[in-house]
Design a protein around this nucleic acid. Structure first.
Lengths: 193, 193
DNA sequence: GACTAATCGACCGTTTAGTTCTAAGAAAAT
DNA sequence: ATTTTCTTAGAACTAAACGGTCGATTAGTC
């Protein structure tokens, strides 16, 4: 036994690439298997179904995203810069974590119940992260907010709005500028005068 | 009658995008039809088969490539610069004309006989183009060559060698440098001392 | 050699996707 | 107004593809 978990991870990594290229439906078990130089049926020794592999892929990408964002919010610097950086990192993740975002956005995948859970988990995490940034901003008297929870929701909504054009046509053209613009607008209502 | 040919072109343009995203096999008639807000069977009023659409897409992209390269070789300037530019334009086309290159390279598509013809046509065109550049170089005494036909073949072979890594992993990292290096090497044997 | 871990080819039932057919709406011609 | 031609698309057909199962087989360990 070489360690079942190791191979599971290899499958997840490999499947992740194929899923992100073709999407869930267009990806076949045959392809996943071949990318690992295995027979199709061997994959079923490690996962019960294609759906389960997808779930593992999503989980993995969610973990990666969480780590990235976590690192940003823990970094030192003034809260304004951190919030900017947070938004940028989040948007850039689109390219790498396409399965995760597919799962969050794609209507075709609605029927998977774990997607719904993932969406909730994602929202909660994001709001908590943003709220933490805002809270630190209030503490250090950079921001002037009554209710950080509500403000976090507002910021998250704005960020989500940016995702839609980014998701539909993948090019990032103009997004960085719009991102700055939005964050700027947010700041004019937030930053202490 | 709105003009059948116009709609055929619209189908080719739309199908081109989908093919380049998913490849021939993974692209469905349904998708092509939907992208034009038509029923699947309506497409068959304009094309006999999926394969025929693909053929038209390839032809179209080949035309585009030919025009681009044609413009380069007709441009004025010293032959060395033109050859450099030619190589660069050719490599950059990879991103836009992915179906065409897929047809040229992808082994899975071998069974289509029009692909074979396309490959031949492409090779002949390319060699003629390169030969023309070299010939002009000889005329203007920039190059020193006995046999421009043979030299053209050599240059084309070198360019083809560059395509392979470019095709496999799509990133262009390092390709520009390698391109310059190869052209440089070619020049050391070609340029008049 | 016996036991287990891991792999794979063959196969099954179902779905999908390319293609055909037909009917019918829209537009043009008479 | 009616006939004819152009254009569309749903339904039906058929072959292939796909997810998944199973039993047999190989590789590895004690």
């Amino acid at each position: 036994m070489v360690d079942k978990e190791k191979i599971r991870q290899k499958i997840v990594l490999s499947a992740s690439e194929i899923f992100s290229r073709y999407g869930f439906k267009k990806t076949t078990m045959e392809e996943i298997a071949k990318s690992l130089s295995k027979g199709k049926s061997s994959i079923y020794y490690y996962f019960h179904s294609k759906e389960e592999i997808f779930e593992a892929v999503i989980d993995h990408e969610a973990q990666v995203l969480k780590n990235q964002l976590s690192k940003v919010i823990k970094s030192s610097g003034d809260p304004e810069q951190i919030l900017r950086k947070y938004a940028k990192v989040r948007m850039r993740s689109f390219e790498k974590l396409s399965n995760y975002y597919d799962a969050i956005f794609n209507r075709d995948l609605d029927h998977f119940d774990f997607i719904e859970k993932q969406r909730e988990k994602y929202d909660l995490m994001e709001i908590a992260f943003i709220r933490y940034i805002l809270w630190r901003g209030v503490q250090s008297e950079h921001f002037n907010l009554e209710n950080t929870g509500l403000a976090a929701l507002a910021v998250q909504t704005a960020l989500k709005g940016l995702e839609i054009p980014l998701f539909w046509h993948k090019r990032r053209y103009g997004i960085d500028a719009r991102l700055d613009a939005i964050v700027d607008i947010l700041f004019y209502g937030i930053v202490r005068k």
